[in-house]
Design a protein around this nucleic acid. Sequence first.
DNA 1: CGCCCACTTGATTAATATCAAATACTGTGG
DNA 2: CCACAGTATTTGATATTAATCAAGTGGGCG
Lengths: 251, 251
Amino acid sequence: MDALIRKLEHFSQFTDEERRALGTLSDLPVMVGPRQDIIREGDNPTGVNLIVEGYAIRYKALPDGRRQILGYFVAGDICDLRVFVLKRMDHSIAALTQVAVRVISEQRILDMTDRYPRIMRALWWATLVEESISREWLLSMGQRTAAERIAHLFCEIHHRARAVGLVEGNSVPLPLRQTDLAEMSGLSVVHVNRVLQELRKRRLITFDGQMLTILDIDQLATFALFDPLYLHLDESRGTITKRQPISAVGA
Amino acid sequence: MDALIRKLEHFSQFTDEERRALGTLSDLPVMVGPRQDIIREGDNPTGVNLIVEGYAIRYKALPDGRRQILGYFVAGDICDLRVFVLKRMDHSIAALTQVAVRVISEQRILDMTDRYPRIMRALWWATLVEESISREWLLSMGQRTAAERIAHLFCEIHHRARAVGLVEGNSVPLPLRQTDLAEMSGLSVVHVNRVLQELRKRRLITFDGQMLTILDIDQLATFALFDPLYLHLDESRGTITKRQPISAVGA
DNA sequence: CGCCCACTTGATTAATATCAAATACTGTGG
DNA sequence: CCACAGTATTTGATATTAATCAAGTGGGCG
């Protein structure tokens, strides 16, 4: 639950009470094995899933088997806050690695947002950020070259993981296969492999299927045409809460 | 305004009062010339734009000039219902053709959704459909070939335009240049040109830059691997309203 | 008429996919 | 600890797709 709070605090500051409320949103986490579906296309889910640990994905497949990953979730991300309106899922959600999820019922969400409008706004913000990310992916797909695309993805992962405290030094635990990167970027596995070699040769990153290390964050960002604005991680409005010392206001 | 109601009624039925409320949402329409920006990246808009006539787009550009269209709006579409939460626009919105827009203030939206929860739900639905569309575009970009992509786009335009009454026979007014199609599909203009020739040769469509005619909708859909489910246009729950004759219930 | 676009065509090149095979790695049972 | 099977990564060769470059064509309009 910590990751959720940590993430949302990039948008707004919370009172201790709000923080406590966020902490009691759901029951115990459930483990889901790697590559297992969490929600399948066509389902009509009754709750919302909070990723506590691991990486999950949103994906969509064509009838002939071609498959595209549409986005990923890190700890603290909530899949489909909005699911209550549409009748049926038009895509699937799956665990990419071993994942811990907490299910949150619709009622719980409604209660919470009723009582704590600031939390509602923060959850809404998170949803909008997710949309913004998918727009950036569209830009990547349409305009960035293969190498830029992968480099951009790595920058994004780094920023998102850092926002929830998953980065140590410049390394992120990232237990993915190259196939996964291929499905995220719309490239073939072989090509992903070659792109990775290029990025390694340029000394921008190391990646061994378990851990991603960014060797030169500035150069990588430049190479990828990465601008973190779309992640909207710097929007904490510094709303006045109990924690902000009053003396600071008049000083 | 008619187009908006017509669109929303694919999701829910309205009472006459709700319909009247929807009709008075905004002031007179403003004309925007083709290729003019409506909202620019970095802006912080105070209202929401309803497209009354013409086609508008969402787009995003890289610092070196590469540009990607992320989605388009037809009559009845509202750009950015959610703009009130994020600080700054992370992309731009522009008129693609001559466009008529009505600006709706935040306050007006809030009032309306307060008084008419069914309308709020419908607007929410529209937003979710837009997201669903952008997921489908991601799938297209990543997995569909150039020809499938363009064909799929045409199927989508046809369905969306039909949903607001813009289709006559199998023709949609579509005053676009091939450059526009290129920016929508992430292809070069030259390649779009060749793809169009292929689609014409297969007798699937005709398109002259003003009017799109779909010659064989089934074949086109098959070719494009098009499944209209993601447009969620068949979800009208048949909510009971004044217009539904009571006798029908017990009969 | 002539100019400016947009569209079209052809030729060439670059990016990426595909196919096939080799190598490395992981976990398992003996 | 080793052998082995199965999976993931890497490599090389080739094919395909789409981009780029360059040069037309054609239509609308001042």
